[in-house]
Design a protein around this nucleic acid. Structure first.
Lengths: 219, 219
DNA sequence: GTGCCTATATTTAGAGG
DNA sequence: ACCTCTAAATATAGGCA
């Protein structure tokens, strides 16, 4: 940030360097996928964890409110950050729940939307799965699908027919999506190796022998 | 780069510049203290909350591990983000503690109970959880979107397409889906607000008969 | 592992729809 | 409210101590 025009500030040790040669590579863009090198991954974890802590504290400072954060490192070590403390945040959550105060209004309405978004998230999860990301999202999906009496959530008053139409269309989209996902998945099974580059042109023969069981069609 | 003579005057030598006018002020530095203006604070809260969600998901993607995050907005509404889910993280924390595993921060225990109860009695957490993911995923998907006429998607034969084409189609579907969802959301919000009474019972063609009390949504 | 450094990549404040 | 746009502020990858 401080780096002004000529970028010659790295010579702390009065060692003269080539004047117009870059001292470092600067921040390089990295692919958003699991870092394979153990060492790099650990370093990145540390740095980014700090970054998140900072963001969290800034959010609290700027906007007030409370925050609690727990992170398990790839090696399983737990870290946490909280303001005023994880404890306080957790207790407040309990208190709100017990008194049914702040959460009741927030909960009642989003119920419908929760269901809606649940279904959307379903799609996202499949999408991610196709690209080899967020494999464990499925766990959450499962848990969420256990939501009590989802059907009751749809009794909300709705202002018009067009909404139903939208819902119907939504449903169709989901089916189509699932179908396409299936096909993609099948192809992927046979050309998995080439699929790291998302814009790589990967084409395969047109039919798949098996592997349809790989992808359980839901929704 | 270096914050040179800021904004207002872009004329280095005190004469009129025709094309040098800045279109916006760009990101301005702000003091790290509570934002007083209600509106600004709310906006900043939203933006930064999304930012943190993204950072969290990136951390998980790059490094693996698990993360659970709970935020109370200044007005007391709870938000959360978790991977694989807040519940999983909480349970893991509990497990670690039960087995006496090395806990770098033991203060987080109550969060476990909090989330258990939340999950049972209140969908708000799930809602926010999903919302966070949705926002994050939406950005990922946005990068390569080009939406053809929706109708073409419906009739499109799946069989003859390359993997690339299928992937592209997926993205279109995602976007379409999100768009429709937004419309539904808006309508629901509006209608729910206007039918803000308890036990409003308006049945929709295909689903359950009654709903519980509904309240307006706010941050 | 932590901390510093630079050069970039990313985030986001502010203003408009 | 939520999205877009832009320019400036931050975060951070890759190195080194």
């Amino acid at each position: 940030m401080e780096a002004n025009t000529t970028a010659t500030t790295y010579n702390k040790s009065n060692h003269k360097q080539k004047h117009n040669k870059k001292q470092t590579k600067g921040k390089q863009k990295i692919e958003m996928k699991m870092i394979q090198d153990d060492d790099d991954r650990l370093i990145t974890f540390s740095k980014r964890r700090s970054g998140i802590y900072k963001k969290a504290s800034e959010l609290v400072t700027l906007c007030g409110g409370e925050i609690g954060l727990v992170i398990f490192s790839p090696s399983g070590k737990p870290f946490s950050y909280g303001h005023p403390s994880v404890d306080v945040v957790a207790k407040r959550l309990l208190l709100d729940q017990a008194t049914g105060a702040a959460t009741s209004d927030a909960a009642a309405h989003p119920i419908v939307e929760a269901h809606r978004r649940l279904r959307i998230n379903n799609l996202n999860q499949q999408y991610n799965d196709l690209f080899g990301h967020l494999e464990t999202e499925k766990e959450k999906q499962k848990e969420l699908l256990k939501m009590p009496a989802p059907d009751e959530l749809w009794a909300a008053p709705i202002e018009g027919l067009s909404l139903d139409e939208l819902n119907e269309r939504q449903r169709c989209l989901e089916e189509l999506h699932a179908t396409i996902s299936n096909h993609v998945k099948e192809r992927l099974t046979r050309s998995l190796n080439s699929f790291n580059n998302k814009d790589k042109n990967v084409s395969t023969p047109a039919t798949a022998p098996s592997s349809s069981s790989l992808f359980s069609k839901r929704i």
